[in-house]
């Protein structure tokens, strides 16, 4: 499938550039991973007294899984508004690293005309999937990013709505399905890791993993995420054998 606005350097259609539908297809593992997690969020939101509309509004407007679960804990415990806001904003700081990394990998000719729209969907999973696609030779395109982001966004919103509507125990009769869906995100990240793996980046990944485990166990999951990413990236600066010149 090709799209008229996907052109290569010569102005002709570029078969390596992803289309909107290819982006949607690439979002499938994210969709399958997001729905059960968003479902759990919807259930938990109703559990602390939020209405269906409030639960869905958090997913549509805030759109950050980890922060949303923390938001429930803060709202449920009656935390002051400013404390809640600053805590949740701090949780999103890791996203600052994603845009520059993705656009550098995309190359100097990559369009960002509509980045104001598709960047809204640049979650951890969408970033990882986009980066994996580029590492496998896919040329960056905004339609691909729209497809990828929209599939994930709709899955998150609809999963929240279903969970908030169904209430607790909806998957209790299907424990194997619930368990399998619970492994979707680790499976996705492992597959993405394999897709970007190179010998030069092994120390980076190893140090990121160790830092994540250590800080998560010693402090918190959010701090572990930030520590792992920064420690791995700093290891990449110190590792002169790394492929830092790659676009």
């Amino acid at each position: 499938m090709t799209s008229p606005d996907i052109t290569g350097p010569t102005g002709r259609l570029d078969p390596q550039a992803g289309t909107f539908l290819e982006g949607l297809w690439a979002s499938l593992p994210i969709v399958l991973g997001y729905v059960p997690i968003a479902f759990a969020f919807g259930v938990a939101a109703r559990g602390i007294g939020l209405t269906l509309a409030e639960a869905v509004a958090l997913s549509l407007i805030l759109y950050s899984g980890g922060a949303q679960f923390v938001a429930l804990a803060l709202i449920g415990s009656g935390a002051p508004f400013l404390v809640s806001a600053f805590t949740l904003i701090a949780m999103g700081l890791r996203h600052l690293l994603y845009g520059p990394t993705l656009m550098r990998r995309a190359g100097p000719g990559a369009s960002r005309r509509h980045a104001w729209a598709w960047a809204w969907g640049l979650t951890d999973e969408v970033f990882g999937t986009a980066l994996g696609a580029l590492a496998r030779g896919r040329r960056f395109s905004e339609p691909f990013m729209f497809g990828l982001g929209l599939g994930a966004y709709l899955a998150w919103a609809s999963g929240t709505a279903m969970g908030a509507y169904a209430g607790s125990g909806a998957l209790a009769a299907w424990p194997a399905v619930e368990t399998g869906l619970g492994f979707m995100l680790p499976a996705l990240f492992l597959a993405l890791l394999l897709s970007v793996l190179s010998r030069a980046q092994l120390p980076v990944i190893g140090i990121a993993a160790v830092a994540t485990i250590a800080v998560t166990l010693a402090w918190s999951g959010t701090a572990g995420l930030l520590a792992g990413m920064i420690a791995g990236a700093v290891a990449g600066v110190l590792n002169r054998r790394g492929d830092g010149g790659a676009p």
Partner: peptide
Amino acid sequence: AATGPAAIGTL
């Protein structure tokens, strides 16, 4: 260049 693999490994 290292941020991508580090982020995916972390996640």
